[in-house]
Nucleic acid binder design. Structure first.
Lengths: 221, 221
DNA sequence: TCCAACGAAATTGTTGACAATATCTCTGAC
DNA sequence: GTCAGAGATATTGTCAACAATTTCGTTGGA
């Protein structure tokens, strides 16, 4: 390959996106050391770009930056994951409430469509598809709510949970337990019932908390 | 003065703290341009330090960073301030609920003490004192709740509101309206009534939202 | 008087070299 | 066999010069 060294502005984006991807894919594990030189080699970026990218990731809580000791993938404990989910519960409750108040007829139809596809995915045992629809639903509700601040916070919090969400989705029977909860959110928003929508969103995430508590500590590798 | 140029690690802290202070004090106004050279002069820091500090502040949402055009103090619209307060309402609701569940007898006593001092401050027309107690109460509840994640988010959100909080506190009659709301939070937490505590915290911030809506757009300077 | 084009100044972005520190490795004594 | 210490290596932190870009002011023309 030719010397396609990515530089500056773009390098920063490339590196932070690359690390994010590696984190989601599990190619980088919590606690793993992130050496600037290595990263700049793998991503063909300058060390400056790597440095800035690491700062960005640290600001998002994905990476831990210890002075003079470099960067590590941040370790999120089960306890912290639970706290994160508690925050998500209230914030998604807010979004669901507002979505119920504000959604247009087209948006309500789209929601119902997502619900139908979720049913199918679970019926067919399509874990990946269901997982994707899951994200889609949460994003859609946040967007419809018009709560951009809450949406920003939720994105941030979700970013820190990738590892746990993966672990959760793999638990046997999880989809059939979460499906009715998702459908309850959809129905409440569709029915323009803010109180029910908020309650449904909260109930869903409260159940996630229960699953988290039942989760063995993540294997460090 | 001798050449006391602050450098590196520390410079970064000094500059970001200095800008934060200037922001609170109103010495820097939203939209104002932040030129790296000027900042490095005023804080006797290197341009590198200034750069890093600006990145930090941008990550916290206090500063807006436009490529090739430099940094500005971020402008928070009334609409955004309302959204921020809506998020605060749910998150402080969570904290109040947990505080009601978890507070030790000593912490409950401390809360009552804060309440008593608030009463006094309002009776004496001590605006600054009341404002300080206000912050103290919110911080205390967040701390007692053990919700460190929520606490972090709240700090972040509050940082973006400094300007508005200042404007609000100055409104005539504001203290006498907010005092009973604060006391309601204190009583509910003290009475170990989670539902009431959450409701009280939400009600308080809902009232802040009403005041925000009645606020004329901030004067740009 | 207004506008466009040009040039000068100001400002931000980038780089590579060097400095400071931490980590690892090897040796030798107990 | 283990541990302490010294040296070597690896890694991060800092800086100042240079490059690229934007912004501002000026000039000339319509």
């Amino acid at each position: 390959m030719a010397e396609n060294r990515v530089t500056g502005q773009e390098g920063r984006r490339v590196v932070s996106a690359g690390i994010r991807r590696a984190l989601s894919a599990g190619d980088m594990v919590p606690g793993q050391r992130l050496v600037e030189q290595e990263l700049s080699d793998t991503f063909h970026a300058t060390r400056s770009s790597v440095r800035e990218a690491l700062q960005d990731l640290a600001a998002e809580g994905l990476v831990e930056l210890v002075p003079r000791r470099g960067a590590r993938v941040r370790v999120v404990s089960v306890e912290e994951a639970i706290q994160i989910t508690e925050c998500r519960a209230t914030l998604e409750g807010l979004c669901a409430r507002r979505a119920a108040e504000l959604a247009t007829p087209e948006e309500r139809a789209e929601l119902r469509a997502i619900g139908a596809r979720m049913r199918e995915a679970v019926a067919e045992g399509d874990l990946d598809g269901y997982s994707a629809l899951n994200r889609q639903l949460h994003d859609f509700v946040a967007r419809v709510s018009g709560q951009q601040v809450a949406q920003g916070l939720l994105e941030r919090l979700n970013g820190q949970m990738v590892r746990f969400q993966f672990r959760l989705a793999m638990r046997p029977g999880r989809p059939s337990r979460s499906l009715p909860q998702h459908l309850a959110i959809i129905e409440a928003v569709d029915a323009a019932d803010p109180d029910a929508a908020e309650a449904a969103a909260r109930a869903h995430l409260d159940s996630v908390i229960l699953e988290l508590r039942a989760t063995p500590p993540p294997t460090a590798g």
